[in-house]
Write a protein that binds this DNA or RNA. Structure first.
Lengths: 343, 343
DNA sequence: CTGAAAGCGCTTACAG
DNA sequence: CTGAAAGCGCTTACAG
């Protein structure tokens, strides 16, 4: 009675019904009498039978799979995913599972012909694009995607001419919140650490909000306090060293990522500055370590979970033909000790 | 001439050959004349044709997909993947892509019936299991996997009775390296921070190596210097505070993760200790931040990339019927400033 | 409520 | 080197 790789026909034989009835029963069709359905499902369970997804997919033209395309910044040398996106994977996977979708991940380089294949080959019903920061670079690829009627949603800012839909963090608001908070606490000379070139539109947006907070209060911002640099990991300490070497006076630091902020705190402490006494520090991201460094880091948190769920909800909506809109989600300031305003 | 969703038959009509010849040409079969093949491939490209994976998979009984099952420690509440495994995703995905496999990710709780379905439903040809630390808990699940002839490979220690194959880091060697290094630098009272209960067999193995290094040199280890605790993120500072509160004397710290080590460095500095002058610190993992804290953290690095590639190579070997062996990979000590031995 | 039948789009023996 | 044909395992209109 044990069958090697059972098919619906095997179940049918065992249950004494037609293969069509087995198929209906396993999909919980109301057309099948309950008693029959239960019997069939029991046999299927007994035999460890699972519907062949290839056959079902061939028939229905669906894969019930979402492809997650992560932009590979290393150009193929290394394979490090931008660490910021990693935690999203878990949330995306779970949300997708709740809606009955599997998640296929793929690292894609800019040079790859990454657009159309997943959907055209029926491996995925739609795509989520993570890490495609600079729209201008991808413009043509996105257009090709749209032309091929591929369903996709981008994690990133909403840009007018950009094809498709996107869901992103409102980085301007984030920068605004950080700077407002420091200015509200009486800090007047806030250094800005972060790369705001076109390569990093998110950081540029954070700077925009930072600048706007100064404007709101009619406080000028000294351009000498803005440290731009390429290498993000060491920017914290190098930025501080540079500011000190240049003899800049500052009473606060806003870093575009927590990694930079934490590195900056170290450098400040090493140079004998008290944080937040002498210099307040605010970061961005709320990475796990942020709450555990000393002083605990005040930072701007993007709701990664909410964002992930929204991305999945949108792509599934697109797949199932529902209306979908682009949106920006407001981040939230998490006040801890490093800003000196935690009461 | 533009076809909506072209099939191999459309290509065949356009090329004036049979559908079978198209199929052969697209798979680069040597049976097809080169001129014919080129013509067919050109037309396919022109039409943005891609082989329907469901149809091909149904025919060949293969999916060319590997399922990556990540253990979800949160029991479904949250969806955070253990951060240590995240970087592996990128390497696994790339290695798999190089061998022609897609990667499906899935978060699985202990209670899930996570074993058999992926392969039985022909969604994946084999499984990679990440994060299944405590074999005893999964014993039955792994046996069920093996019984169902599911191909799988586990990232973790090799355990004798454990079904299937595994690839892991030699954590004993790692702990040994760390402790030998500190002892070799003249430290004699090394505190150990980490949870070594059965829930964390990797950490227990690191402790084992740590202990063995003491034995080698005939140096006793004061059990009062071992701080065990549940909450890993704050163990660094809490551990140090506890040691100090208990009046323990120590000249070094070995923490089972870098996060704990970095937190410990902070706590030491806050309490007026110089690192590494008064207390040397060694961590484990070599997380990105490790090189950038002050002092830069000496740590034990697992070669995540090599491990990921080995996992993929093994599962693909299993899928393609080649012989595969379990193995342990030696980690490597990365000497920086925090151990006071960088010269 | 159930069954017989068609067909999804491929791959691959078989025949030439 | 190429074609006609079978068949992978489903889903679903159609008929009853």
């Amino acid at each position: 009675m044990k069958v090697e790789n059972p098919t619906s026909r095997d179940i049918a034989d065992l249950a004494g019904v037609s293969q069509a009835t087995v198929s209906r029963a396993l999909r919980n069709s109301p057309l099948v009498r309950e008693e029959t359905r239960n019997r069939i499902q029991a046999i299927a369970r007994e035999l460890n039978y699972f519907v062949n997804r290839n056959a079902a997919g061939l028939r229905t033209h669906q894969s019930n799979t979402i492809a997650l395309l992560l932009f590979d910044e290393t150009g193929g040398e290394d394979a490090q995913i931008n660490p910021f996106f990693l935690p999203m994977l878990g949330y995306i996977t779970r949300s997708a599972a709740e809606l009955g979708y599997d998640v296929l991940i793929s690292m894609q380089q800019l040079t790859d012909d990454w657009h159309i294949e997943y959907q055209a080959s029926h491996r995925a019903d739609g795509l989520i694009l993570l890490g495609y920061g600079d729209y201008m670079t991808y413009r043509e690829k996105l257009r090709a995607l749209a032309r091929a009627n591929t369903r996709f949603i981008i994690w990133g800012p909403t840009i007018n001419e950009q094809p498709g839909h996107s869901i992103g963090c409102d980085n301007v608001i984030g920068g605004l919140q950080a700077a407002r908070h420091l200015l509200g606490a009486g800090r007047r000379r806030i250094a800005f650490l972060g790369n705001t070139t076109r390569r990093c539109p998110e950081f540029a947006a954070r700077y925009e909000g930072f600048r706007r907070a100064h404007e709101e209060l009619g406080i000028g911002f000294d351009p000498g306090l803005k440290v731009d640099a390429d290498n993000l990991t060491t920017l914290g300490s190098r930025g501080i060293e540079q500011l000190l070497a240049d003899g800049r006076v500052f009473d606060a630091v806003f870093a575009v990522t927590d990694a930079i902020a934490i590195d900056a705190i170290h450098a400040l402490q090493q140079n004998g500055y008290d944080v937040p006494g002498d210099v307040a520090v605010v970061g961005f991201d709320d990475i796990p370590l942020a709450a555990h460094v000393t002083p605990a880091l005040t930072t701007v948190r993007q709701d990664i979970r909410q964002a992930s769920e929204a991305l999945v909800k949108s792509i599934v909506g697109l797949i199932e033909g529902e209306p979908v809109e682009s949106s920006l989600m407001a981040p939230r300031l998490i006040v801890r000790q490093s800003c000196g305003a935690s009461g």
